[in-house]
């Protein structure tokens, strides 16, 4: 009973992931949706690091770093898109963006 359980981390990641999914699904403000996506990515990172520690493999840390870099890129482009939407519509409410409506 000395070590930490692997599942401690994995379940924490699962909870964080689901909270992120919930945020993506229910939030109306596009910036908040992007924040929820960050939660999802963090959940993934926790998993990567936990598996890395479990297997004694440094690859987990390396890929977590890659995910962080990609998250930075994603937020940059995502916020640029949000700004563009705001500039065109004076609103970032996702309800207003319904071009796909049939």
């Amino acid at each position: 009973m000395d070590d930490l359980l692997l599942n401690q981390f994995l379940l924490l990641g699962a909870v964080l992931f689901c909270l992120g999914v919930y945020g993506v699904l229910v939030r109306r403000n596009a910036v908040l949706v992007l924040m929820s996506i960050e939660l999802i990515l963090n959940a993934v990172n926790i998993n990567l690091i936990a598996f890395g520690a479990w297997r004694g493999d440094v690859a987990g840390s390396v890929f977590a770093l890659f995910v962080i870099a990609i998250a930075a890129a994603e937020v940059g482009v995502g916020l640029a898109i949000v700004l563009l939407i705001y500039r065109n519509r004076r609103s970032v409410d996702l309800d207003d963006i319904a071009e796909l409506k049939g």
């Binding site: 699904l25 229910v26 939030r27 949706v33 319904a98 071009e99 796909l100 409506k101 049939g102």
Partner: peptide, 10 residues
């Protein structure tokens, strides 16, 4: 087909 992406995501 509400056009609301979040519903599609759900």
């Amino acid at each position: 087909q509400t056009g609301r992406v979040q519903q599609y995501a759900a």
